[in-house]
Every structure is written in C-alpha cells, then in structure tokens.
Computed example of a mutant assay.
Amino acid sequence: MSLVLTEIKNKVGIITLNSEKTLNSLSLPMIEELQSILTDWKTSDQVVCLFLQGAGEKALCAGGDVRKLYDAIMAQRAIDPTEVPKDCYDFFSKEYQVDYDIHTYPKPVIVWGSGIVMGGGIGLMVGASHRIVTEKSKLAMPEITIGLYPDVGGTWFLNKMPSAFGIYLGLTGARLDGADCKYLGLADYYMESSSKEDIINALKQADWTSNPYQTVSDILNTISENTDIPESQAALHHEFIQNFEGVDAVEEFSDLIRNYPEKDDWINTGLKSFTAGSPSSAHIIFRQLKQGKHLSLEEVFQSELNLSCQCCIHPDFAEGVRALLVDKDQSPQWQPATLNDITTEWIDSYFAELKVEDFQSLS
C-alpha cells in the first residue's frame, strides 16, 4: 500500500497522506515519498497547483511517528548514548526539508486542514499558500508533553502570532479550533467540512491560463464567503495573553499562569499541560522563541534540526514518548524534575552545535 497517493486532474496535483489508522502520522518513508512528489511536480508542466489532504475524515496528520524515533534512540543508547541516532537525524532533516519546500514552493499549495492537525501536520500546513480549516479542525503543538519543543518551523510561525500567543501556545500546547487558526494567522480560509468536493470540482474545472494563485484564491473566496465563523476562544482570551508580553523568564511565565485569578476551562487546560510537561522543554521553548525571533526561514530549520537532534541525546524526549506511547503510564520521570532544578548550563547544552553529518543546506 502506498503511503502517499497522487492523482492529477486538470493540472491539479492531489496528494493524499494514506495512513488512516495512524491518523496519517508522518513516518520516514512517507516523508521521502512526499519529498519526491514535491520535487517532481515543482517543474512539471502537468501540474499547476497542489492540493494536500489526509485519508479519511479524522485527520490531515497527527504529527510525526515519534514511537519509531523512540525505538531508534533506545537502540543507539545501548551502543553510544552521545551519538545522534541516524534514523532520528534522517527523519528530522527530511521532514524539515519538506516543510521548507512547501514554504518556498513556486506553485500554489492548498492544504485541507480539517480534523486533527498536530505537530508535524502543522509543519505541512503552515507554509502553504492557501490553508483551509473547518468546524472539525483541531490543531496543537503539544510537544512540551513529550519532552520536545514546537519544531517544524515553530520558531518561525509562533513568533509571527499576535501578542504573546506564540510563547503561550508553545509552553501550554493549547488546542486550537478552526476559528482560532483564522484569528492567529495559521489559516487563510474557514469553511464547512462538507465543502471539500466543491473545491476539488471547482479546481478540476478551472481555467489556469491566468495567475494560478489568483485563480485558487477566487475559488476559495467564493466557496467560503457565506460561511459563519464561530467565536474564537483565542480571541476571547486576548486580554489574558497580553499579560505574558513582557515575560523574561520561564519562572515568570509559570508564576503568572498559576496565580491568574480568573481561570476558566481554556486557561486551566493550558496550565495542566504546562505543569505536567517537561521542565527542560519549557526552558528550551522559551529560549528557542526568544533567540529565533529574527532568524530567516532557512536559519529556523537549521537551528531546529540541531535542537531536535540534541533532544534525541538528552533524556526527556525518549522518556516522554515512553510514558505516553510505550508503557502508557502517563507518569514521565523528567530529568531534571522541576523548573527550579534547571541550570543555564543544562539549557546551553541543548543549544550546543552538533557536528552531525554537517547539516546540509535546505535551500
């Protein structure tokens, strides 16, 4: 069974992530297939625009297959725990290359972001030229809960959000619906999930002789124009998020969210993820976003590749995956165990440059 299905209709290249059982989670073979398609279609006269979707109704993509990465880390630890596992390096470097290619693609890329879109799924969606969400969309970057950090370009897109939403979402893994995504700039169009066939049919009948970006925009504007967008929880919490704008340290963030007097369900859910998450991750995320504010897109992916590889040789990533997906005891033993146990030297060690196969350029 092919992990990625393709068809071309009227110069529209339709790509379907085809692993419905795993909610279309990204494995290395799937990433490699995607890369091959993107590369082939970049210069093909047969394809004028791309439409990316997930198989089934439940998800575009629930993220990367971190269980496989866990296995690679554990196997490498038995041999030499200071070395980055090759499978992990291959996974992250190839995943980020695909993400970078979508950001810089020379043709319109439409992404159907209905259902679950998490972690690596957001990486595929966020750089597209035309990003669609629906009433079924559920997006999040919950990496703090597995000892990782919001990668796949998170340094780039979280820093582009209004107010302090980027740092808040990074540290709490807060869930977003379609209305939130539109409000925060993660999506361009909100429409009913039943509209997909209408879009594909319109694309199949489109006249591609003029500007294809404009042609796609006109089609999506027409289909989405009468859709009512519900109220966004993120928008309703804008005033609360403004409290974090001047925060200079993770401890300050922690004090603010813990002691906020008027907590509702949305805030409590974020607080729960933050307090249960890896203390090292909290510090890494804070530094990642502060340091990465002015990086170019290519520099963002280079720095994230280094940081992700470092996470593979630090303890918390494997431990977070073990607790969530392997033993499923939901009781990760983080090292260090609390925010206050963490030293500057420890966080510096995550950002130390690795000489792994001399990171290739993404351009």
Score class of each variant (00 low, 15 high):
262 E>R: 09
264 D>P: 06
254 S>V: 15
225 E>S: 10
254 S>W: 07
232 S>M: 09
245 E>A: 07
253 F>E: 04
255 D>C: 09
233 Q>G: 14
266 W>L: 07
243 N>S: 13
241 I>M: 05
225 E>Y: 05
256 L>F: 06
237 H>K: 13
255 D>S: 15
252 E>A: 15
241 I>G: 01
234 A>H: 07
219 I>C: 05
229 I>W: 02
243 N>V: 03
245 E>V: 10
226 N>L: 14
223 I>D: 01
229 I>Q: 06
223 I>V: 12
241 I>P: 00
264 D>K: 02
229 I>R: 00
263 K>P: 15
265 D>E: 11
253 F>S: 07
242 Q>Y: 03
217 S>G: 05
260 Y>F: 15
239 E>S: 12
260 Y>A: 03
221 N>P: 00
265 D>C: 06
222 T>V: 13
228 D>N: 06
239 E>F: 08
229 I>K: 02
259 N>F: 11
216 V>D: 00
245 E>L: 04
240 F>A: 04
246 G>H: 13
245 E>F: 02
215 T>W: 02
240 F>C: 13
237 H>D: 10
252 E>Q: 14
248 D>V: 04
246 G>T: 04
266 W>A: 14
264 D>A: 04
225 E>W: 06
235 A>N: 11
238 H>T: 12
235 A>T: 05
254 S>L: 09
216 V>S: 00
229 I>M: 12
215 T>C: 08
234 A>I: 03
255 D>Y: 11
224 S>M: 01
237 H>A: 11
266 W>G: 06
248 D>E: 15
260 Y>C: 15
247 V>Y: 08
224 S>E: 00
243 N>F: 08
243 N>T: 13
234 A>M: 04
245 E>D: 10
248 D>W: 02
261 P>A: 10
249 A>T: 08
234 A>G: 12
245 E>I: 09
234 A>C: 12
255 D>T: 15
249 A>C: 14
250 V>D: 04
242 Q>I: 06
258 R>K: 08
240 F>T: 03
248 D>C: 04
230 P>V: 12
264 D>G: 05
230 P>C: 14
237 H>L: 08
219 I>P: 01
260 Y>W: 15
224 S>P: 12
245 E>T: 11
247 V>E: 03
240 F>W: 03
263 K>C: 15
226 N>A: 14
215 T>S: 05
259 N>G: 04
